[in-house]
Amino acid sequence: MGEIKTAGELNKKYLREGMWPTIFCNGCGNGVVLEYTFWALEELGLDMDKVAFASGIGCSSRLPGYINADGLHTTHGRAIAFATGLKAANPDLTVIIFTGDGDCAGIGGNHFIHAARRNIDMTVIMINNFIYGMTGGQLAPTTPIGGIATTAPYGNIEHPFDLCVVAKALGASYVARWTVSHPYQPIKSIKEGIQKKGFSYIEFLAPCPTAYGRRNKLGDIQRLWEWYDKNTILIEDYERIMKYGDEKEKERAKKMIQIGVFQDVEKPEFFTEYQKLVERLQGNTITKTSSVKSKKMVVKK
Protein backbone atom coordinates (compact mmCIF):
# COMPACT_ATOMS: atom_id res chain seq x y z
CA MET A 1 0.00 0.00 0.00
CA GLY A 2 1.11 3.48 -0.77
CA GLU A 3 3.41 2.35 -3.56
CA ILE A 4 0.78 2.51 -6.26
CA LYS A 5 0.57 5.88 -7.95
CA THR A 6 -0.82 5.29 -11.42
CA ALA A 7 -3.91 3.63 -12.83
CA GLY A 8 -1.63 1.26 -14.73
CA GLU A 9 -0.02 0.00 -11.52
CA LEU A 10 -3.42 -0.21 -9.92
CA ASN A 11 -4.80 -2.34 -12.73
CA LYS A 12 -1.82 -4.63 -12.67
CA LYS A 13 -2.47 -5.35 -9.04
CA TYR A 14 -6.25 -5.73 -9.07
CA LEU A 15 -7.27 -6.86 -12.55
CA ARG A 16 -7.70 -10.52 -13.42
CA GLU A 17 -5.65 -10.64 -16.59
CA GLY A 18 -7.10 -13.85 -18.00
CA MET A 19 -10.49 -12.19 -18.42
CA TRP A 20 -9.23 -9.26 -20.47
CA PRO A 21 -10.59 -7.58 -22.63
CA THR A 22 -13.92 -6.61 -21.08
CA ILE A 23 -17.30 -6.98 -22.72
CA PHE A 24 -18.09 -3.29 -22.17
CA CYS A 25 -18.94 -0.82 -24.95
CA ASN A 26 -17.12 2.41 -25.63
CA GLY A 27 -18.24 5.10 -23.21
CA CYS A 28 -19.62 2.63 -20.64
CA GLY A 29 -19.42 3.76 -17.01
CA ASN A 30 -18.68 0.34 -15.52
CA GLY A 31 -14.93 0.62 -15.91
CA VAL A 32 -14.91 3.95 -14.12
CA VAL A 33 -16.72 2.47 -11.13
CA LEU A 34 -14.33 -0.48 -11.14
CA GLU A 35 -11.41 1.94 -11.08
CA TYR A 36 -12.93 3.88 -8.16
CA THR A 37 -13.36 0.58 -6.33
CA PHE A 38 -9.72 -0.36 -6.93
CA TRP A 39 -8.55 2.97 -5.55
CA ALA A 40 -10.74 2.52 -2.48
CA LEU A 41 -9.40 -1.00 -1.91
CA GLU A 42 -5.85 0.24 -2.36
CA GLU A 43 -6.32 3.08 0.08
CA LEU A 44 -7.82 0.69 2.61
CA GLY A 45 -4.94 -1.74 2.09
CA LEU A 46 -7.20 -4.80 2.27
CA ASP A 47 -5.84 -8.32 1.83
CA MET A 48 -7.49 -9.40 -1.43
CA ASP A 49 -7.57 -13.01 -0.25
CA LYS A 50 -10.17 -11.87 2.27
CA VAL A 51 -12.29 -9.79 -0.09
CA ALA A 52 -15.05 -11.60 -2.00
CA PHE A 53 -17.25 -10.15 -4.72
CA ALA A 54 -20.73 -11.18 -5.73
CA SER A 55 -22.94 -10.05 -8.56
CA GLY A 56 -26.12 -10.88 -10.41
CA ILE A 57 -26.82 -10.63 -14.12
CA GLY A 58 -26.24 -7.67 -16.38
CA CYS A 59 -23.29 -5.63 -17.64
CA SER A 60 -22.25 -4.27 -14.24
CA SER A 61 -22.61 -7.76 -12.75
CA ARG A 62 -19.74 -8.85 -14.99
CA LEU A 63 -17.32 -6.70 -12.98
CA PRO A 64 -16.23 -9.36 -10.44
CA GLY A 65 -14.88 -11.36 -13.37
CA TYR A 66 -12.29 -8.67 -13.99
CA ILE A 67 -11.09 -8.52 -10.40
CA ASN A 68 -8.30 -10.75 -9.17
CA ALA A 69 -10.25 -12.07 -6.18
CA ASP A 70 -12.94 -14.60 -5.34
CA GLY A 71 -16.09 -13.76 -7.30
CA LEU A 72 -19.55 -15.25 -7.34
CA HIS A 73 -21.42 -14.38 -10.53
CA THR A 74 -24.89 -15.51 -9.57
CA THR A 75 -28.44 -15.51 -10.94
CA HIS A 76 -30.37 -12.40 -11.93
CA GLY A 77 -31.13 -10.20 -8.91
CA ARG A 78 -29.99 -12.69 -6.29
CA ALA A 79 -26.43 -11.58 -5.55
CA ILE A 80 -27.33 -10.02 -2.21
CA ALA A 81 -29.01 -13.23 -1.04
CA PHE A 82 -25.98 -15.29 -2.08
CA ALA A 83 -23.71 -12.81 -0.32
CA THR A 84 -25.79 -13.16 2.85
CA GLY A 85 -24.91 -16.84 3.06
CA LEU A 86 -21.29 -16.21 2.16
CA LYS A 87 -20.95 -13.64 4.92
CA ALA A 88 -22.61 -15.99 7.41
CA ALA A 89 -20.21 -18.81 6.59
CA ASN A 90 -17.16 -16.59 6.83
CA PRO A 91 -17.75 -13.29 8.65
CA ASP A 92 -14.08 -12.41 8.18
CA LEU A 93 -14.65 -11.80 4.49
CA THR A 94 -15.24 -8.30 3.18
CA VAL A 95 -18.18 -8.81 0.83
CA ILE A 96 -18.73 -6.39 -2.06
CA ILE A 97 -21.58 -6.68 -4.52
CA PHE A 98 -21.73 -5.21 -8.00
CA THR A 99 -25.21 -4.86 -9.36
CA GLY A 100 -27.19 -2.82 -11.82
CA ASP A 101 -30.50 -1.01 -11.67
CA GLY A 102 -32.43 -3.83 -13.34
CA ASP A 103 -30.70 -6.44 -11.19
CA CYS A 104 -31.04 -4.58 -7.89
CA ALA A 105 -34.22 -2.48 -8.21
CA GLY A 106 -36.10 -4.78 -10.57
CA ILE A 107 -35.79 -8.53 -10.20
CA GLY A 108 -33.69 -8.32 -7.03
CA GLY A 109 -35.64 -5.59 -5.26
CA ASN A 110 -36.89 -7.81 -2.48
CA HIS A 111 -33.48 -9.22 -1.60
CA PHE A 112 -32.13 -5.68 -1.52
CA ILE A 113 -34.91 -4.48 0.78
CA HIS A 114 -34.47 -7.29 3.26
CA ALA A 115 -30.68 -7.22 3.42
CA ALA A 116 -30.88 -3.47 4.06
CA ARG A 117 -33.53 -4.05 6.74
CA ARG A 118 -31.46 -6.76 8.45
CA ASN A 119 -28.43 -4.48 8.13
CA ILE A 120 -26.14 -7.23 6.91
CA ASP A 121 -22.50 -6.23 6.66
CA MET A 122 -21.90 -5.90 2.94
CA THR A 123 -21.22 -3.15 0.43
CA VAL A 124 -23.59 -2.96 -2.51
CA ILE A 125 -22.27 -0.93 -5.43
CA MET A 126 -25.18 -0.32 -7.79
CA ILE A 127 -24.46 1.03 -11.25
CA ASN A 128 -27.54 2.79 -12.50
CA ASN A 129 -27.66 3.39 -16.25
CA PHE A 130 -31.46 3.78 -16.43
CA ILE A 131 -31.82 0.80 -18.76
CA TYR A 132 -31.44 -2.96 -19.29
CA GLY A 133 -28.21 -2.64 -21.25
CA MET A 134 -27.08 -6.21 -21.77
CA THR A 135 -30.38 -7.30 -23.27
CA GLY A 136 -30.45 -4.36 -25.62
CA GLY A 137 -32.19 -1.41 -23.99
CA GLN A 138 -35.46 -2.41 -22.38
CA LEU A 139 -37.34 -0.29 -19.84
CA ALA A 140 -35.83 -0.39 -16.32
CA PRO A 141 -37.44 0.49 -12.97
CA THR A 142 -35.09 3.50 -12.98
CA THR A 143 -35.77 4.83 -16.47
CA PRO A 144 -36.75 8.50 -16.12
CA ILE A 145 -40.26 9.53 -17.12
CA GLY A 146 -40.25 10.19 -20.84
CA GLY A 147 -37.14 8.08 -21.43
CA ILE A 148 -37.15 5.95 -24.56
CA ALA A 149 -36.52 2.20 -24.31
CA THR A 150 -37.10 -0.63 -26.77
CA THR A 151 -40.05 -1.67 -24.63
CA ALA A 152 -41.12 1.94 -24.04
CA PRO A 153 -40.86 3.17 -27.63
CA TYR A 154 -43.28 6.07 -27.02
CA GLY A 155 -41.61 7.24 -23.82
CA ASN A 156 -41.72 5.87 -20.29
CA ILE A 157 -44.82 6.71 -18.23
CA GLU A 158 -43.75 4.82 -15.07
CA HIS A 159 -42.42 6.58 -11.98
CA PRO A 160 -38.76 5.66 -11.49
CA PHE A 161 -37.50 3.81 -8.43
CA ASP A 162 -35.15 5.67 -6.07
CA LEU A 163 -33.26 2.99 -4.17
CA CYS A 164 -31.33 5.49 -2.03
CA VAL A 165 -34.58 6.69 -0.50
CA VAL A 166 -35.64 3.08 0.08
CA ALA A 167 -32.30 2.08 1.65
CA LYS A 168 -32.41 5.12 3.90
CA ALA A 169 -35.96 4.39 5.01
CA LEU A 170 -34.96 0.83 5.83
CA GLY A 171 -32.20 2.10 8.06
CA ALA A 172 -29.20 0.90 6.08
CA SER A 173 -25.99 1.99 7.80
CA TYR A 174 -24.56 3.80 4.82
CA VAL A 175 -26.30 5.20 1.74
CA ALA A 176 -24.73 7.38 -0.95
CA ARG A 177 -25.18 8.28 -4.60
CA TRP A 178 -22.71 9.83 -7.04
CA THR A 179 -22.28 10.02 -10.75
CA VAL A 180 -19.24 8.66 -12.52
CA SER A 181 -18.24 12.22 -13.34
CA HIS A 182 -17.34 12.83 -9.70
CA PRO A 183 -13.75 11.69 -9.36
CA TYR A 184 -13.08 11.88 -5.62
CA GLN A 185 -16.28 11.53 -3.62
CA PRO A 186 -17.04 8.02 -4.92
CA ILE A 187 -13.71 6.63 -3.77
CA LYS A 188 -14.32 8.12 -0.34
CA SER A 189 -17.85 6.69 -0.27
CA ILE A 190 -16.72 3.20 -1.31
CA LYS A 191 -14.08 3.32 1.42
CA GLU A 192 -16.60 4.44 4.00
CA GLY A 193 -19.06 1.82 2.82
CA ILE A 194 -16.56 -1.01 3.10
CA GLN A 195 -15.40 0.17 6.53
CA LYS A 196 -18.94 0.47 7.80
CA LYS A 197 -20.10 -2.50 9.87
CA GLY A 198 -23.51 -2.85 8.31
CA PHE A 199 -25.35 -2.59 5.02
CA SER A 200 -23.79 -0.02 2.70
CA TYR A 201 -25.44 1.05 -0.51
CA ILE A 202 -23.55 3.19 -2.98
CA GLU A 203 -25.23 4.06 -6.25
CA PHE A 204 -23.53 5.42 -9.35
CA LEU A 205 -25.26 7.13 -12.21
CA ALA A 206 -23.27 5.76 -15.10
CA PRO A 207 -23.66 6.21 -18.84
CA CYS A 208 -24.83 3.53 -21.24
CA PRO A 209 -24.35 5.28 -24.58
CA THR A 210 -25.27 2.15 -26.52
CA ALA A 211 -28.60 1.11 -25.04
CA TYR A 212 -29.83 4.30 -23.37
CA GLY A 213 -27.90 7.26 -24.73
CA ARG A 214 -28.40 6.44 -28.39
CA ARG A 215 -32.20 6.42 -28.13
CA ASN A 216 -32.41 9.41 -25.84
CA LYS A 217 -30.31 11.88 -27.80
CA LEU A 218 -27.50 11.31 -25.32
CA GLY A 219 -25.42 8.97 -27.43
CA ASP A 220 -22.55 11.38 -27.46
CA ILE A 221 -20.80 10.57 -24.19
CA GLN A 222 -20.12 14.21 -23.46
CA ARG A 223 -23.83 15.01 -23.66
CA LEU A 224 -24.60 12.24 -21.21
CA TRP A 225 -22.07 13.58 -18.73
CA GLU A 226 -23.55 17.04 -19.19
CA TRP A 227 -26.97 15.57 -18.54
CA TYR A 228 -25.75 14.29 -15.17
CA ASP A 229 -24.37 17.70 -14.40
CA LYS A 230 -27.66 19.43 -15.19
CA ASN A 231 -29.97 16.88 -13.64
CA THR A 232 -28.30 16.12 -10.33
CA ILE A 233 -28.17 18.18 -7.18
CA LEU A 234 -26.16 17.76 -4.00
CA ILE A 235 -28.31 16.81 -1.03
CA GLU A 236 -27.00 19.84 0.86
CA ASP A 237 -27.98 22.18 -2.00
CA TYR A 238 -31.37 20.55 -2.28
CA GLU A 239 -32.04 21.05 1.41
CA ARG A 240 -30.86 24.65 1.28
CA ILE A 241 -33.19 25.39 -1.64
CA MET A 242 -36.09 23.73 0.12
CA LYS A 243 -35.45 25.99 3.12
CA TYR A 244 -34.53 29.29 1.52
CA GLY A 245 -35.24 29.03 -2.20
CA ASP A 246 -38.16 30.51 -4.14
CA GLU A 247 -40.94 28.39 -5.65
CA LYS A 248 -39.32 28.20 -9.06
CA GLU A 249 -36.05 26.96 -7.61
CA LYS A 250 -37.90 24.46 -5.46
CA GLU A 251 -39.84 23.09 -8.42
CA ARG A 252 -36.65 22.67 -10.40
CA ALA A 253 -34.78 21.03 -7.51
CA LYS A 254 -37.59 18.53 -6.97
CA LYS A 255 -37.15 17.25 -10.51
CA MET A 256 -33.45 16.63 -10.03
CA ILE A 257 -31.70 13.50 -8.77
CA GLN A 258 -30.12 14.04 -5.39
CA ILE A 259 -26.52 13.00 -4.94
CA GLY A 260 -24.31 12.82 -1.88
CA VAL A 261 -24.31 10.83 1.34
CA PHE A 262 -27.91 10.10 2.31
CA GLN A 263 -27.17 8.23 5.51
CA ASP A 264 -24.16 7.38 7.66
CA VAL A 265 -25.13 5.83 10.98
CA GLU A 266 -23.97 3.19 13.43
CA LYS A 267 -26.50 0.43 13.90
CA PRO A 268 -26.41 -3.19 15.15
CA GLU A 269 -25.38 -5.51 12.34
CA PHE A 270 -27.17 -8.82 11.76
CA PHE A 271 -24.34 -11.35 12.05
CA THR A 272 -22.73 -9.49 14.96
CA GLU A 273 -26.04 -9.74 16.81
CA TYR A 274 -26.39 -13.38 15.77
CA GLN A 275 -22.94 -14.15 17.14
CA LYS A 276 -24.00 -12.62 20.46
CA LEU A 277 -27.03 -14.91 20.43
CA VAL A 278 -24.83 -17.94 19.76
CA GLU A 279 -22.53 -16.97 22.63
CA ARG A 280 -25.49 -16.42 24.94
CA LEU A 281 -26.86 -19.88 24.08
CA GLN A 282 -23.49 -21.51 24.56
CA GLY A 283 -22.93 -19.82 27.92
CA ASN A 284 -22.50 -21.79 31.13
CA THR A 285 -26.09 -21.77 32.23
CA ILE A 286 -27.33 -23.29 29.02
CA THR A 287 -24.66 -25.98 28.91
CA LYS A 288 -25.47 -27.11 32.43
CA THR A 289 -29.15 -27.50 31.75
CA SER A 290 -28.96 -28.53 28.14
CA SER A 291 -29.63 -32.22 28.67
CA VAL A 292 -32.68 -31.44 30.81
CA LYS A 293 -33.84 -28.86 28.29
CA SER A 294 -33.45 -31.12 25.32
CA LYS A 295 -35.43 -33.85 27.06
CA LYS A 296 -38.18 -31.38 27.75
CA MET A 297 -38.01 -30.25 24.18
CA VAL A 298 -38.56 -33.77 22.91
CA VAL A 299 -41.59 -34.30 25.13
CA LYS A 300 -43.10 -30.94 24.27
CA LYS A 301 -42.91 -31.53 20.56
Partner: peptide, 23 residues
Protein backbone atom coordinates in the same frame (compact mmCIF):
# COMPACT_ATOMS: atom_id res chain seq x y z
CA UNK B 1 -26.34 -19.81 11.69
CA UNK B 2 -30.05 -19.81 10.92
CA UNK B 3 -31.62 -17.11 8.81
CA UNK B 4 -35.16 -16.73 7.57
CA UNK B 5 -34.93 -15.28 4.09
CA UNK B 6 -37.46 -13.20 2.18
CA UNK B 7 -38.42 -16.08 -0.11
CA UNK B 8 -37.31 -19.50 -1.32
CA UNK B 9 -35.24 -18.02 -4.13
CA UNK B 10 -33.18 -16.13 -1.57
CA UNK B 11 -33.07 -19.16 0.72
CA UNK B 12 -31.31 -21.38 -1.78
CA UNK B 13 -29.16 -18.44 -2.90
CA UNK B 14 -27.95 -17.93 0.68
CA UNK B 15 -27.33 -21.65 1.06
CA UNK B 16 -25.15 -21.69 -2.06
CA UNK B 17 -23.30 -18.57 -0.90
CA UNK B 18 -22.66 -20.21 2.47
CA UNK B 19 -21.35 -23.30 0.75
CA UNK B 20 -18.78 -21.21 -1.13
CA UNK B 21 -17.84 -19.72 2.24
CA UNK B 22 -16.99 -23.25 3.33
CA UNK B 23 -20.16 -24.21 5.22
Amino acid sequence: TYIQMEDEIGSLAAVIGASWGGA
